[in-house]
Amino acid sequence: MPKGVGKIRIRLPKHIAKGEVIPVKALITHPMETGLRKNKKTGKIIPAFYINDVRVYYGGELVTHADWSIAVSANPFMTCYVKADKAAPLKVVWKDIKGSVYEKTVQIQPE
C-alpha cells in the first residue's frame, strides 16, 4: 500500500454501457487503530483512530452510506455497485473519528 494516511484509489470498469450496474472499487490508506492495541515498547495504549462514516454520492445524490467501526481492517477496501444511467461525477467521502474528511471524485461516463 502507498504510505501515509488518506491516499485514495478508485477504480471503475474501463468501458461502461449506459444503464449497466458497475462495481466501484475504492481503497483508502488509513491505520484504522482500534484503540485496543498497545505500543509493544512503551506499553501505552495507541489511541483509537478509525474511519466511522463512508458516503458515496453519484451526481450529487447519496447512493450508499456505511457506518464503519473498529472491526474494519487497516487500509480499508470497499466495493459498491452503481447503476450507471447518467454521465455524472461519483464522489466517495470518508470521515474518521478525529474529524478528518477524505474525498475523491471520479467521472462516470457511460458510452
Binding site: M1, P2, R9, I10, R11, P23, K25, F77, T79
Partner: peptide
C-alpha cells in the same frame, strides 16, 4: 467477488 485490493495498485 468483492474484488482484490491489489487491483487498485495496478494503476500505480
Amino acid at each position: 467477488e468483492d474484488g482484490n485490493p491489489a487491483e487498485l495498485a495496478l494503476d500505480d
